Simulated assay, not measured.
Amino acid sequence: MPVFSHGFPFDPAHGRSLDQLLALPAPTAPADFDAFWTERYEAARRVVTAPAVGPLEEERDGARIFGVSFTSVGGLRLGGWLVLPADGPAEHGFVVGHGYGGRQDPGTDVPLPLPRSAAVLPCVRGLGARSRRPGIPGEAGEHVLYGIDSRDTYVLGDCVADLWCAASALLELVPELVSEPAGGAGDRPGARLGYVGESLGGGLGALALPWDDRMGCAQLTVPAFGDRPLGLTLPSVGSGRAVRAYHHDHPGVMDVLPYFDAATAASRIRVPVLVAAALFDPSVPPPGQFAVYNALAGPRELYTLSAGHFAHPDEARETAELDAARRRFFGERLRRT
């Protein structure tokens, strides 16, 4: 286990070895967990996303980057960026989630994991430069509590739907990514999409993936929201701290949180997933991250990080190694034209 000098009033490794982390199970799912999320997914697929592309903003790393907006559930218009190959048609597609800091620009999400790819980089509702909306808090500790008293109003459910609607917008804008249905005439068209998400985006991605057959594989880095009951017992400096404090005064929230457990959702994911989980993380407790990896029901790969959400001497090397692993992972799994 890594040993870091830090000023936190708790152990960001939470006293667990790698073997102990790899033995953590997913919590028990609510009886209607699958029905709840299937209904939400179907509602998101019915949304007319009406994507609109703005002018070219950047061209770099073999890609052209445009502003984009689209409609999500509740009729909310959201923004982000559309990435297209600088030359030729797109051979792969990605939806790229972001962390609780929001997305202010495309940043290091470009270059994409594979060349000749198209992607949508959405800002989920309330966060980032292009999806701040009146009434939805933009600060992590307030955003994570928005609507939390009901599973039907909790903002995380709508943020998951934002990712599904972002995928719909991408497929409308880049129709060459759509493939013919494998079954009968009533089946929906498929797609060649990968998902990439970190922290908040990792947790949202785990919640989104089981229900969306357009996503063929995913890479999740330090995913949030794994094993919510355990997470309520573990100190952190991230959004989980706000949820723990709220739960202390409102214990009934445990009727809601199990529906938004990334580890429970991971037990329904059957497509290949590469997880980068950290042994030391002050913002997203490692036990929750590993609970997501452990629960995955399909092909899985693990890249173990020394630390997440924490600067350390090996950070640049590990980031480069994870980038290489991500490129290999998607290169082996995303179907080409």
Rank of each mutant, 00 (worst) to 15 (best):
S5N: 13
F8Q: 02
P9R: 00
F10Y: 02
F10C: 02
A13R: 00
H14W: 00
S17R: 02
S17E: 03
D19F: 12
D19S: 14
Q20R: 10
Q20P: 11
L22M: 11
L22G: 10
A23I: 03
L24P: 09
L24M: 10
L24W: 01
P25Y: 04
T28Y: 01
T28F: 05
D34K: 06
D34S: 15
A35V: 09
F36Y: 13
T38V: 13
E39C: 11
E39H: 10
R40H: 08
Y41N: 07
Y41V: 06
A44E: 02
T49V: 14
A50H: 05
P51C: 03
E57Y: 03
E58V: 03
R60I: 03
G62L: 00
G67C: 05
F70C: 05
R77N: 13
G79P: 11
L84K: 01
L84R: 00
G88V: 01
H92E: 14
G93A: 05
V96D: 08
H98Q: 09
G99P: 04
Y100G: 15
G102L: 07
Q104K: 13
T108Y: 12
P111W: 00
P115W: 01
G126C: 11
G128V: 06
R133S: 15
R133H: 15
P134D: 10
I136C: 09
G138V: 04
G141A: 12
E142G: 11
L145K: 01
L145N: 05
Y146W: 14
S150F: 03
Y154R: 02
V155Y: 01
V155H: 07
D162L: 09
A167P: 04
S168I: 03
L170V: 04
E172D: 13
P175E: 06
P175Q: 05
L177H: 01
E180S: 15
D187G: 12
R188A: 15
P189Y: 01
A191K: 00
L193D: 11
Y195I: 07
Y195K: 02
E198N: 14
G203N: 08
G205C: 11
A206C: 13
L209A: 11
D213N: 12
D213S: 14
R214C: 05
G216F: 08
G216H: 11
A218G: 11
Q219I: 12
L220E: 14
T221Y: 08
T221M: 14
V222D: 10
V222A: 09
F225T: 04
F225A: 10
P229N: 04
T233Y: 00
P235D: 03
P235A: 06
P235G: 04
P235L: 00
S236I: 03
G238P: 08
A242W: 07
V243H: 05
R244D: 10
Y246L: 10
H250I: 04
G252F: 01
V253W: 02
L257Y: 07
P258C: 03
Y259K: 02
T264D: 11
A266F: 05
L274A: 10
A276C: 09
A277I: 06
A278P: 12
A278M: 05
L279I: 03
F280W: 10
F280K: 02
P286N: 02
P287V: 02
G288L: 08
V292K: 01
Y293E: 09
Y293A: 15
N294C: 09
L302P: 12
A307L: 06
F310W: 08
T319H: 12
E321G: 09
A325M: 08
F329A: 13
G331P: 07
L334K: 01
